[in-house]
């Protein structure tokens, strides 16, 4: 009776994992929180406008500028909610015993779980983007460039995949969901707080562009120069900024990013400029490289794991 190829087994694992993900209270909680924060971000200006009597300016680029609107911490929380017990939970709950004795290779199980995590994440982000699009239109008037939202979705998913890879690697090695969450939160905090301090102290801000997280901050400019106060929007060079930079690049591929440092006596000194395309390509490569290495570590550990209990 039994037979079939690889694909039905792979999709069976995806289905198994998706049914778990959509019933996870943690994920539902994070999604509800993100929707509440998005609502707050949309409603607060309206409330302030009514209180102060100042008219709320129309902003046709509000939605493409804001994207999913959850920031680096939000993406990290989504990564934790989706992946913290994806592998470790099977060992902790004893369900690995039955799952791993089915005629499906561990590599297929790992790939199926990863695919399900990405589908879950992409669906949650798509819901957030749709919500922002509707809300943004109501609050700020008709929106432009909404066709770029898939780029925003892609970028945010890639950024979150990198955080998810850390969570999966820690979870797979430790076989503990708690350690997966706390360990990756420790990494997140160390990168968010520690690395800017170290890079500033060593005067080597470029390091930030090669670490997971927000990265260094530059400022958008066309041809010509200026100071942070006269140039355009701030640009994060790190892996968390991929979505925003993808949209900016699609809107204007010739943009440059200029970097400054605050020297003695609070003087702002221009360091260097580079094309936005280079910043974007580097952040995508960095996120992909970290994801690949960490996922390979998670896969290798999962593949070799014995089930003792």
């Amino acid at each position: 009776m039994a037979g079939g190829g690889w694909a039905p087994r792979f999709w069976a694992v995806v289905r198994y994992e998706l049914l778990w993900n959509i019933r996870k209270k943690k994920l539902i909680g994070v999604l509800v929180l993100a929707l509440l924060l998005a609502t707050l971000a949309l409603v607060l200006p309206v409330v302030l406008s009514n209180v102060t009597g100042l008219e709320l300016a129309r902003n046709p680029n509000y939605v493409v500028d804001t994207g999913i609107g959850v920031g680096g911490l939000g993406m990290f929380l989504f990564a934790v909610a989706v992946a913290m017990n994806s592998i470790s939970g099977e060992f902790e709950g004893g369900t690995a015993v039955t799952l791993l004795t089915k005629p499906v290779s561990r590599t297929t199980i790992f790939l199926g779980k990863l695919t399900a995590a990405l589908i879950t994440l992409g669906s949650a982000y798509a819901l957030l983007l749709a919500y922002m699009a509707v809300g943004g239109t109501i609050v700020y008037g008709p929106q432009e460039n909404l066709h770029l939202l898939p780029l925003s979705l892609l970028g945010a998913t890639l950024s979150t995949l990198m955080w998810m890879s850390i969570v999966l690697a820690v979870g797979s090695i430790s076989k503990s969901s708690l350690l997966a969450a706390l360990g990756s939160f420790g990494v997140f905090m160390a990168l968010a707080v520690g690395s800017p301090i170290i890079s500033m102290a060593s005067d080597q801000a470029w390091i930030l562009s090669y670490l997971p997280g927000g990265g260094a901050t530059g400022y958008l400019a066309g041809a010509g120069g200026g100071t942070p106060y006269t140039l355009g929007a701030a640009v994060s060079t790190g892996t968390d900024g991929i979505a925003a930079n993808l949209v900016r690049y699609a809107l204007n591929p010739s943009l440059n990013v200029t970097f400054f440092k605050v020297a003695n006596r609070m003087q702002v000194v221009e360091l260097y400029s580079e094309p936005l395309s280079a910043v974007l390509a580097r952040s995508i490569l960095v996120a992909s490289a970290y994801s690949a290495v960490l996922l390979a570590a998670a896969w290798y550990t999962f593949r070799r794991a014995e089930v003792l209990d």
Partner: peptide, 26 residues
Amino acid sequence: PELPRFPRHLKGRELLDIYGRMYGMS
């Protein structure tokens, strides 16, 4: 296994259906 444990979030039928797919059953 001895005292088997299954994903608590799945229904009995869903579990058998997914495992059946893993065995390549149509």
